[in-house]
């Protein structure tokens, strides 16, 4: 509870100072005279051609999905890693190593399948 309160306090300090600096720079800076050239999105000097919801590669979406799957698998390894030595001290080292071996095997098969299906190629 104490740590949670401390985190919230710190987050509040950071947000307040960050927002304060943005606000300070908006009152310290000169008055804005908006011209059409100034507010146009930057495109190397040419007039804007495309809308902002331009076409983007589906690969980004695919990468995000694959990331979620693998990240969850890695998170499952964390509690195992922390308790690994305790299990060995209890004489259950072979059991815990074998159990994780099966899980890591599935991870490797998944990764190989992904590479084989060219889901990770960016050409």
């Amino acid at each position: 509870m104490s740590a949670l309160l401390a985190i919230l306090t710190f987050a509040l300090i950071v947000t307040a100072i960050g927002a304060g600096l943005v606000w300070l720079s908006s009152i310290a800076g000169p008055k804005v005279r908006k011209t059409s050239a100034k507010v146009m999105p930057y495109e190397c000097g040419l007039p804007g051609q495309e809308a902002k919801d331009t076409k983007i590669s589906i690969k980004f979406y695919l990468t995000a999905i694959l990331f979620i799957i693998f990240d969850i698998e890695i998170i499952f390894m964390y509690p195992w890693a922390v308790t690994y030595f305790d299990f060995m001290k209890e004489g259950l080292g072979g059991y815990i190593l074998g159990a994780m071996g099966v899980f890591i095997l599935l991870f490797v098969v998944g990764l190989i399948w992904e590479v084989k299906s060219k889901a990770l190629d960016w050409n």
């Binding site: 943005v22 310290a28 000169p30 507010v39 999105p41």
Partner: peptide, 27 residues
């Protein structure tokens, strides 16, 4: 110099995300 610059949102921008992103980058 940074403090004395003009502040404005680009015409197709959205002000909340535009101003919120730098603060979010600190957290």
């Amino acid at each position: 110099k940074f403090l004395t610059k003009e502040n404005f949102v680009p015409e197709k921008g959205e002000w909340f995300f535009y101003y919120g992103a730098p603060v979010m980058a600190l957290i």
